[in-house]
C-alpha cells in the first residue's frame, strides 16, 4: 500500500466535470464574487482529472487564508492546518505516505510571510510534493494587509500611502532555494494553468506553481482596479510572458512576467533517499531482533 505512486497515464476518457471533485454540500463556497481562487481550484481539479488520480490517493493540505480555505471544498483527503505550516505538515505526510499525491494549497501570506522559512527548506529538500501558491498580493482573509508579494506602490490596509517595500518574486525564490520544478500562470488562461499544474503533479520532486490570482473585493477595490471582469482582463493586457518582451520591445507594457514552466530539473528527490536510510536502519534492527 505504501509503494511510491506510478502515474497510470491519462485516464481522462470521461469529460471533466468539476462537480465530481468537490464537496457539493459545501457549495456555494465562501469566496467573494469573482475571486480568482475559485478558478485556480478548478484548474487543479481538472489536472487531477486528466492524470486520472484517484480521489483516495489525493491528499490536499492547506494553511489559513482564503486560499487555505480551498482544501475544504475538495472531495478528497484534506487537511486544513495552521497558518504558514501546510508545507511542514505535507512534508511529514509525503514522507510516510509516498503512495499519495500530496498537494499544498497556500496563499502568498501563508507561504512566504509566516511560512517563508518552511517554504525555502521544503524547496531545498526537493521532496515529492506539489505546492500551489495563489498569489493575490494581499492578505485577503484578514482584510487586506500588505504581503511579501504586494507590488511596490500598491495600496493595502497597512500601506495606505502605497507599498514602499520591494516584493518577492516567489518563482525566483523557489528556484534559488532548490525546487525541482517551478511554474507560473495567471487565472485568465485556465487550460494553460491546468497544464502547468499537471506538469507539476507529474514532477518527481518538489514542484512549485505560482498562480496569479485576483482578490477582487479587497485588493482590486482598494487599488481601483475595477470589477471582476476588468481585473481578469487586466491580466491579459498587463501580465505578459517574458517571451513577448524578448521578441517585441513593449515600452508601454513594462509589467511583463514570465509564465509557464520556468524551471524543471532532475535533482535527487529527498523522499527516496530518506526511505532508503530508514530501510537500512530497519533491516539492521530486524537482524538484531533475530540474534536476540
Amino acid at each position: 500500500m505504501n509503494d511510491p505512486i506510478v502515474l497510470e497515464g491519462n485516464a481522462a476518457v470521461e469529460e471533466f466535470d468539476v462537480r465530481k471533485y468537490i464537496r457539493l454540500q459545501m457549495m456555494p463556497h465562501f469566496l467573494c464574487p469573482g475571486c480568482g481562487h475559485g478558478i485556480a481550484l478548478r484548474a487543479l481539479l481538472w489536472a487531477v482529472h486528466e492524470l486520472g488520480i484517484d480521489k483516495d490517493r489525493l491528499a490536499v493540505v492547506s494553511g489559513i487564508g482564503c486560499a487555505g480555505r480551498l482544501s475544504a471544498y475538495i472531495d478528497a483527503n484534506t487537511f486544513h492546518v495552521t497558518h504558514g505550516r501546510p508545507l511542514a505538515f505535507a512534508s511529514g505526510l509525503a514522507l510516510v505516505r509516498p503512495d499519495l499525491h500530496v498537494v499544498v494549497i497556500t496563499g502568498d501570506g501563508d507561504c512566504l510571510a509566516i511560512g517563508g522559512n518552511h517554504f525555502i527548506h521544503t524547496c531545498r529538500r526537493n521532496l515529492k510534493l506539489t505546492c500551489l501558491m495563489l498569489n493575490n498580493e494581499v492578505y485577503g482573509m484578514t482584510g487586506g494587509q500588505v504581503s511579501p508579494t504586494t507590488s511596490e506602490t500598491r495600496i493595502t490596509t497597512t500601506t495606505q500611502l502605497g507599498n514602499a517595500e520591494p516584493h518577492f518574486d516567489a518563482c525566483a525564490l523557489a528556484a534559488a532555494a532548490g525546487a525541482g520544478f517551478v511554474g507560473r500562470e495567471v487565472t485568465h488562461h485556465v487550460p494553460k494553468l491546468k497544464d502547468v499544474m499537471r506538469a507539476a503533479l507529474e514532477h518527481p520532486g518538489f514542484a512549485f506553481v505560482e498562480v496569479m490570482s485576483d482578490c477582487t473585493e479587497i485588493f482590486g477595490r482598494k487599488n481601483d482596479m475595477g470589477s471582476s471582469p476588468e481585473m481578469i482582463l487586466r491580466q491579459k493586457s498587463e501580465i505578459r510572458p517574458s517571451a513577448y518582451r524578448d521578441t517585441v520591445e513593449t515600452p508601454f507594457r513594462p509589467n511583463t512576467l514570465p509564465t509557464g514552466v520556468l524551471m524543471c530539473n532532475e535533482r535527487p528527490e529527498y523522499g527516496a533517499a530518506y526511505r532508503q536510510y530508514a530501510q537500512t536502519v530497519k533491516s539492521a534492527g530486524d537482524g538484531k531482533q533475530k540474534r536476540g
Binding site: 466535470d17 464574487p33 475559485g38 478548478r42 485568465h188
Partner: peptide
C-alpha cells in the same frame, strides 16, 4: 465554464 470562479456554469 472555465472562468466562473463559482463552478456555476457547465
Amino acid at each position: 465554464e472555465w472562468l466562473c470562479p463559482d463552478f456555476a456554469i457547465r
